[in-house]
Design a protein around this nucleic acid. Sequence first.
DNA 1: CTGTTAGCGCATTCAA
DNA 2: TTGAATGCGCTAACAG
Lengths: 337, 337
Amino acid sequence: MHQTTIIDIARQLGISKSTVSRALTAHPNVNAKTRQRVLELAEKLDYQRNQLAISLLTNQTHTIGIMVPEFISFFFPKVIIGAQEELAKSGYNVIICHSNESYETEVANAKALLASRVDGLIVSHTKETRNFDHFMTFQRKGIPVVFFNRVCEAMNVSNVTVDDYNGAFQAVEHLIKTGRKRIAHLAGPDTLANSRNRLNGYRDALTAYGLPIDPELVIAYDLNLDKANIYVNHLLNLPNPPDALFAMNDPTALEALSVAKHRGLSVPDDLAIVGFSDDPISALIEPGLTTVSQPVDELGQQAGQVLLRQLSTKEDGFVPERIVLPTNLIIRGSTVN
Amino acid sequence: MHQTTIIDIARQLGISKSTVSRALTAHPNVNAKTRQRVLELAEKLDYQRNQLAISLLTNQTHTIGIMVPEFISFFFPKVIIGAQEELAKSGYNVIICHSNESYETEVANAKALLASRVDGLIVSHTKETRNFDHFMTFQRKGIPVVFFNRVCEAMNVSNVTVDDYNGAFQAVEHLIKTGRKRIAHLAGPDTLANSRNRLNGYRDALTAYGLPIDPELVIAYDLNLDKANIYVNHLLNLPNPPDALFAMNDPTALEALSVAKHRGLSVPDDLAIVGFSDDPISALIEPGLTTVSQPVDELGQQAGQVLLRQLSTKEDGFVPERIVLPTNLIIRGSTVN
DNA sequence: CTGTTAGCGCATTCAA
DNA sequence: TTGAATGCGCTAACAG
C-alpha cells in the first residue's frame, strides 16, 4: 500500500516537490493559487505528512516519553493527563510506557524511547530500580529528564514531588493530637524517595511530641497488597498492639481497614487509620479514610512545564528545578468520630 | 548534541558503514571479529539505533496506536495493558492517545497517529463520535483497525466486545426474579453501540417476563456523572417511582446508591440497583453493588491478538473478526439481602 | 515565486 | 566478507 507523498502531488500538478512542501508548510514564498491547488489535491489524496522523515531531518520528534511503574491506580493516569495537556499546548505528543514495576521492563522501555528519539522524558521509576544508568544515558545524550513522584535524588535532574515529609508529619501529628500513643507505620520500600521521606516525617512527628519510636511498629514492605494483610495482622497480634496506623498509601490503608473490620475492631476507636494520596475510593467507603491528599493534576502539569522550560533552554544554561507541591490532610471517619 | 551513528562507528573502526550495519543487525555475512569490535564500540559510545531512519526505510514503525476516550476509570487502563502485553510479544510498541471524550481531539489524535505512521490502530471511540471518516482513512491506507468496547458497526473492521445484550438481559432478569416490577434504566447515549445493546437487553428481558416497557423509566444520558444525580432524583420523584434501577455503568449506579441513601431509602428493599463493569469500588462499598462484570484483561488481549493476525495477513485475504466475550452477573447487597 | 541539490541515518542491493 | 551506491520522504539552503 502506497501512502501519498509530496512527490505524488508534485507530479500530478507538474510542479516541483519543493513547492509542494512550501505550500504544505505555510511557507510565505508560494503563489496563492499554487498553494490552493496543492492543498486541494493533498486533501483529495488523503495526504498525511510523514513525521518520520521530518523528524529524521530536523532531529526532533516533538514527542515526549512518559514512563510510569503502573497505571491501574488513579494516580498515574491523572498525572499523565496533566502532563499531556501542558505538553500538547506546545505541540508535543506523548508516548506512555508502563513498566509494571519491573526494572527490566523499565530498562527495555528506556531503550525503546531512545530509539524512538523522544525529545524529553518524564518518569517515575519502579520500586525495584536501584541503578539509574538507563536514565543517565538520556542526560548524556542531552535529552532532558524530569522525575516526578518517585525521584532519583542522586541525579542532577529536575524533580517534581509533593511534600511527603510534611504530609506524613501532619498525618502523625493528627493521630497524636487525637490521643493515639502507639502509632504504627506501614512504610514503602526504601528504594523509593517518597517512602523514605514519609518515614522521616513519621519519625520526626513522634519525636517532636515526645513519643518513642518503636522499631516493632515500623514495617517497610514492597507495596504488594497481598502482604499488607499479613503485616497488619502481625501488628495487631503484638502483645502491645498499636492504636493507630499510618500507611504509605491508600490501598494499604484500605486493606488495613478491611483487616480491622474482620477482626471486629472498631475504627477509629480501637484502631485509627491514615492513608496517603486520597484515592477516590477513600471518600466512598465507610468509614471514610483520613488521608494526605496531593495535587495530582498539578503534579503532571508542573512536570510538563518544567520539561518544556528545559526544552527551550540552551544546554549550557541548564539548572535543575526541584519543585515541591504542598499536601493537605483530609480528616474522615477512620480517625475521628 | 550529536547522537552516535553507524558512520561514527565505521570511521573510528576504519570500516564501511555497511559492515557496521550488518554487524549491528546480526546479519550472517560478517566476520566474527569485526562484529565483536563493532559491538564493543557501539556499547562504549552509547549507540542507539535510530528507529526513525529504519522506519522511514522499511515503511513500518512497529508501533501501534491505541485510542481511548479516557483513562481515569479502571476499565481502559486495564484493556490497554492487556493489549500492550500481547503486542509486545511480537515486538510492537504502543502509542496511547486519550481524547477526553472529545470528538475533535479524537480527530486530531487520528491525524497525529497517521503522521507517526503507526502500523495499526486499536480504538474505542468517544461518545460524541457520529462520523467515522477519520478511522476510515486508516482503512483506506491499508492500516488495520480494531475496535473494542465502543465499536463502529457500520465499518467493515474487526471488533472485540463483550456480550452487552445478554449482560443487560441477565441483570434485568435477576431484578425481575427477585420480585421487582418497575425497573428503570439509566442508559448511555445512543451514539454508543454498547449502550444500545444494553438497552435492548433491558427491553427484551422485561418483555420476556411479561412486564411493560414504561418509557418514563428509561433515561438515556451522556454519562456525565453530575447529571446522573439529577436523573435518579427525577425517577424517584415520579408519582409511581421505580423499585429497581439498572444503570449503564458502575459509576452511575454508585451515584444512584448515594442518592438513594441521601433520600433515606433502603437499598435493596426500597430500591434495588445494578451496575455494569464491576468497578473495583463496587465490591468495597456498603452495600456491595450487584453488577455485570466483563473480562477486561481479555478484552485487551483479544484486541491485540486480532490486530496481530491482521498485521500478518495479506491485505486481500482480510476478513474482519467479530469477537464477543461473555459477561457475568455478580450479585451483591444492592439487590439481595 | 519556483526548481535543483543535498542530506538526515539506515538497510540493502550490486560489485568486488 | 566487505565496500560503494541507492533511496525512504522531507526541509532547507542556494540559485535562478
